[in-house]
């Protein structure tokens, strides 16, 4: 089993983006972005190749869309400014500033579930990511494939509020049994 083989298999599933990362720089070999509905197929492929599960966790990308838009607007503004300066230098009249497009609704920020896999025999760390909207964070469970994912998913549910659909026992693991908060969300206030 090598990394190339599993890369092909994952690509065959139709996983959005399977990219090889610089292992020495990043510490993992394959970075796979899948849609939530492809997750079970991708994890089954890893299971068939004999991977073991390292961990499941999440990342809250609150504010990412706003930051992306701000960066895009700054880029547009910089380009317009450069154009105006070039025009002024050439002694021409500045072209009329393009009216900025009406900013629409911001797309919703995402919660990302991150799955780490590793192999006992060959060195190939695979990271699978799937993104779900913050208002409806639902990801299918993989605990029927890897029973070890059971606790990891419960922990991720504790910390991020991601619902693992089909999980047999999604109650708080590390937080108190009546906890109704998710401390690793970026807008969590104690």
């Amino acid at each position: 089993m090598n990394c190339a083989a599993i890369k092909q298999k994952l690509a065959a599933i139709g996983a959005g983006a399977v990219s090889e990362t610089d292992y020495a720089r990043k510490g993992f070999a394959l970075d796979v972005q899948v849609a939530p509905e492809q997750l079970v197929a991708a994890v089954s492929a890893l299971d068939a190749e004999g991977f073991f599960i390292e961990a499941v966790t999440g990342v809250d990308w609150l504010g990412e869309q706003a930051a992306l838009r701000k960066a895009a607007e700054a880029k547009v503004a910089a380009e317009a400014k450069a154009k105006a300066e070039a025009a002024a230098a050439a002694g021409e009249e500045a072209p009329p500033a393009e009216s900025a497009a009406e900013p629409g609704e911001l797309p919703e920020d995402a919660l990302e579930a991150v799955y780490d896999f590793n192999h006992y025999e060959s060195l190939c760390r695979v990271t699978i990511r799937t993104r779900v909207p913050r208002s409806k964070p639902e990801v299918p469970t993989i605990s029927q494939i890897y029973p070890g994912a059971d606790w990891h998913e419960r922990e991720t549910h504790d910390f991020f509020g991601i619902t693992f659909v089909g999980h047999p026992y999604l109650v708080p693991l590390l937080l108190p049994e009546d906890a109704d908060y998710h401390p690793l969300l970026k807008d969590f206030r104690p």
Partner: peptide
Amino acid sequence: MCRKYGATGPVCRGSGINFDVRKHE
């Protein structure tokens, strides 16, 4: 069982899996 639960260290090495991060990675 070690593989399905992600067991490492002496637990997996006691089950015949030769896995030690110091050698593996």
